[in-house]
Design a protein around this nucleic acid. Structure first.
Lengths: 223, 223
DNA sequence: CAGAAACCGGAGGCTTCCTCCGCTATTTGG
DNA sequence: CCAAATAGCGGAGGAAGCCTCCGGTTTCTG
């Protein structure tokens, strides 16, 4: 709602404003109706025509990306805060808890994160930063925190995915149910508990492909 | 495709046939296009009009239920076979492995199971039978198999849900990735690994509500 | 102030959902 | 064996959403 100093030249001020109105409306409507809400309703809510929405965001994904972009700061902040914990194991646990908390506490953020494994170019730096944080925490927990050795970054991603249905199912009834699930998983992640794995972790390529498959699947499957 | 002795009186033979054609077509189309496939295509594939489909199955859910019904035998068979293993821990592990295998190996079955927590009346006996099997296996694993004490039937349901995104994401790339996830979880399920839980398991009511929420969410959210 | 560039908005073609109702096919009673 | 009755069929059509296209408007620029 606040005015922004025109960073863009030309007559784009009004367009910028519409862009923001649309992201705000999308955030609102997605939060009420879920990520599959009607784009026409978003346009309506933003007070612009459907054509305008489509010029600003060619696809629903682009809109999701914009929301992601508008909120990436929060996510990065949470991960860095967790990483600041001095005890390696507690840092690891805290990182998981806080990131899942983020997912569990905000429907839009959950859907956005689920659907937007940021592969894009512009947001690559934020993504890389997050990945680095994650990997540092894992590394520390490996060498000095009692985390089982075979746990990798890819496992972390997979773990995050696994909470989605649980969160969806219990959001209204037992909003902390995911903590129980996480607790058991964490018990399995300690070196003392580890038994030899046969299935290897996902490679980076596999992880990437899996993310794309997820994104394809969650809505918009066959276009 | 085979003829069936008319169990129903009246002129319903043709209708019965259409019913079966529709279930078969639905199975086929769902398997190709996913559970959200167009109902019109199913009708087309079955060689009937869309009106006929809707008379036989008032909603997409009804169709899913019919598929579930047509395949419940397999599921029960798998669970009972796993339960037959004499070693309590191995029975428990086997039960999990085989049921998740079932989900991972068949797209339709996965979607149907995910979306159809059988609350219905007609299928109640099959469901109860399965639940009994599950609970027996858990019970045995508790007393004599080294399963952590705080693990309940509801946890098992939750665990099953958690695999869905993982399976969806990796089906094409690393179809056994779920085994790795399960392995870690199992490591966390042994008494030796268990640390005190704070979050209680879902009660039966909560579980029931969670199932309903899941079903509502996965497609068809706001009607 | 006029021309041009940027931007807006919604009509319209397409798809899918689901309902409604006139029509056909199968039974059954006479 | 015929005809009325009844079960069942199928698709037209309204509603809603997706996305494209293009005439009209706004804001700049010279």
């Amino acid at each position: 709602m606040t005015e922004i100093a025109g960073e863009q030249k030309g007559q784009r001020r009004h367009a910028r404003r519409n862009h923001e109105l649309l992201v705000a409306a999308a955030q609102e409507v997605f939060s009420e109706r879920g990520i599959e809400a009607s784009l026409e309703e978003i346009a309506r809510r933003a007070g612009v025509g459907i054509g305008t929405l489509y010029r600003h965001f060619a696809t629903r994904e682009a809109l999701v990306e914009a929301i992601f972009e508008s909120r990436i700061g929060e996510i990065v902040a949470v991960t860095e805060a967790a990483a600041a914990e001095p005890d390696p194991w507690l840092a690891f646990v805290g990182l998981l808890e806080h990131t899942v908390e983020l997912q569990a506490g905000d429907r839009v953020l959950k859907d956005v994160l689920m659907r937007y494994p940021p592969v894009a170019g512009r947001l690559a730096s934020a993504r890389d930063q997050m990945r680095q944080t994650f990997e540092q925490v894992i590394e520390r927990a490996h060498t000095d925190g009692g985390l089982r050795e075979d746990f990798t970054f890819a496992d972390l991603a997979v773990l995050h995915w696994s909470f989605t249905p649980l969160i969806d199912a219990t959001a209204e009834v037992a909003p902390n149910a995911w903590r129980r699930h996480l607790h058991v998983f964490l018990d399995g992640l300690r070196v003392q508990a580890a038994t030899p794995q046969t299935e290897p972790p996902l490679t980076d390529e596999q992880l990437h492909a899996a993310m794309q498959a997820l994104r394809r699947q969650r809505l918009g499957h066959a276009r």
